[in-house]
Amino acid sequence: MATPTHVIRVPRPEPGAFNPHRPLKKNALLLHQVRHFKKIERRLPKHQKTGIPLGAIRTEAQAAEYLRKMMAVLHPQTAAAGRSEPLP
């Protein structure tokens, strides 16, 4: 099969776009996602709880770390592998 000849250039975001310290309260979607995980966590046995109180999750980075810990419990099939490579 031939390769495409119409190649479109896609720019990358400007340096500085990465903002893991963005306040969680600025993203209603992520805030609710964390709350959903908290509801699930309440049903977990004590040894599987993260010990992270909801009030301690204030930034995207903290939310991501909390989700990572919860996924290690809920979806151990893939949680251990994580993701090591950024997109091309």
């Binding site: 975001p13 990465f18 963005r22 993203n27 992520l30 995207e60 980075a61 991501a64 993701r83 997109l87």
Partner: peptide, 22 residues
């Protein structure tokens, strides 16, 4: 859905386009 670091420290930008993600 989140700006976060990979386990090797690489910056992973949120790609969902939810405001205010890039």
């Amino acid at each position: 859905y989140t700006d976060h670091e990979a386990e090797d420290g690489a910056e992973l930008l949120a790609s969902d386009q939810h405001p205010d993600h890039n």
